[in-house]
Amino acid sequence: MRATVKLFAQLRAGRFKVEEIQIPEQTRVKDVVEGLDIPPEEVAICLVNGHDTGSESVIQNGDTVALFPSIGG
């Protein structure tokens, strides 16, 4: 399965802006976060295809996962 991962603000430091990743079925958002060595507490907002899902949500083939730290304005 493939998914697109997008990182924002401080989460980009030492990582990337956007990448396609290969993942097994039943991969959850939190597994992606762990695979990128991002401490879970640094992720405040997870959007899957633009919907706020929470980190337990299971990723489907072709999904876009966007991860944000706490931000505001």
Binding site: A66, F68, P69, G72, G73
Partner: peptide, 13 residues
């Protein structure tokens, strides 16, 4: 977040 990126950090989200 606000000190570093300002309010424009909102564009991407």
């Amino acid at each position: 977040a606000l000190p570093k990126y300002g309010t424009d950090v909102l564009v991407n989200i």
